[in-house]
Design a binder for these strands. Structure first.
Ligand code: SF4
Ligand code: SF4
Lengths: 137, 137
DNA sequence: TTTAAATACTACTTTAAGGTAGAAATTAAA
DNA sequence: TTTAATTTCTACCTTAAAGTAGTATTTAAA
C-alpha cells in the first residue's frame, strides 16, 4: 500500500513549486537539495512532468521550471493518473484488471467504501489546497 | 497503491483454505492450479505461512496444509502485518517513517480519514467474513 | 521394504523500479 | 564571442521483488 517513489516525488515536487509560485522559476539543483531527491533522478522526473504538461521548462542559463497551469486545476489524482498509478488502486486492491460485480473478488465488498473515499480525496485535493509544510521524505 | 504480490497471494491462499476447511487438507499442487499461482512460488509462500503460524503443514504422502487457528481469529490486517505490509500504509502515503503532527507532511490532513477507514476495514475483515467467490487474479 | 506423494531447503534467474554518469543542447550573462 | 548555468538525451548500474530449478526430506500406501 504505497505509491511508487516516482509518484511520491512528483506530488512533492509539484506541491512545492505550487507553493512557491511567486519565485518565478525553480531550478533542478535547488529542488533536488530542498526536497532531498537525487539530482539525476529529479531531472528525469522533471522531463516527465514537462512532457505530461504539468510543468513548463525554460532551458539555458537563468532557466528553470514553473507550473504549466494554475495550481487549482491540478489534482493529486491527475498526477497519479499521469504516472499510471491510478490504473492500480482504482481497480482492485487484489490487482484484478477488470472488476466484474457478477464475479466479485474476495475483498470486493470490503474494499468498495475505502476505495471510493480515497479516490474522492485524491480528486478533490488540488495543489492549491495542499496545506502541509513538510515536503521532504 | 497496490499490495505486493506476495501479500495478495497470501490473502487469497488463506481465504481459500478457510472457505474449504471441511476438506481436511489442501496440497500445494491443487492450490497452485485452483488459485493460479506458480507452484514453486506458492510453496515458498506456504513455508512462510507455516513459519508465521497461520498454517499447519503435514509432511509426507497424504500430507498437506490446513489453518493453524480458527478463521475467525485471522484478519487481513494480521496477514499484512506478517508480510511487513502494514508498516507502509499505516504510516504514510508519502512514505514518511515517523508521523509528526507538529510537522505535517503535505497530504497529512487529506490522508487521515481514508487511512483510518482502510485500517479498520483490514482489521475487521477476518477470513471467516470474506464472502467473494473469485480467488483468482 | 520399496515407492510415490507430499513438504522443505538451497540456490539461481528474471524483471521492473530506482538511481547514476556523462555528454549534448540551449541560452543569457560577462 | 566566450563562458557558465541551465535543461535534455542516451546509456548504463543497482536493488529488491518475483519467479524458477533441482534436490533433500518425510511419511503413508502398496
Ligand atoms: S471485485 Fe472489488 S476488489 Fe475485486 S477487482 Fe473488483 S473492485 Fe477490486
Ligand atoms: S503527516 Fe500524515 S501523511 Fe505524512 S507521514 Fe504523517 S500520517 Fe502520513
Amino acid at each position: 500500500m504505497q505509491l511508487s517513489n516516482t509518484s511520491k516525488y512528483a506530488i512533492r515536487i509539484l506541491s512545492y513549486i505550487a507553493k512557491n509560485e511567486d519565485k518565478k522559476l525553480q531550478n533542478a539543483k535547488e529542488l533536488s537539495e530542498i526536497l532531498e531527491i537525487p539530482y539525476k533522478f529529479l531531472t528525469k522526473i522533471m522531463t516527465d512532468l514537462v512532457n505530461k504538461e504539468f510543468i513548463l521548462s525554460i532551458r539555458g542559463r537563468e532557466g528553470g521550471y514553473k507550473l504549466a497551469r494554475s495550481a487549482s486545476t491540478i489534482s493529486v489524482l491527475d498526477i497519479l493518473n499521469a504516472f499510471n498509478e491510478l490504473t492500480h488502486f482504482s481497480e482492485c486492491i487484489l490487482g484484478s484488471q477488470t472488476c466484474d460485480p457478477q464475479k466479485k473478488c474476495i475483498l470486493h465488498d470490503q474494499w468498495a467504501k475505502p476505495r471510493t473515499l480515497i479516490k474522492q480525496m485524491f480528486a478533490e485535493t488540488t495543489l492549491e489546497k495542499i496545506e502541509g509544510e513538510d515536503f521532504k521524505t
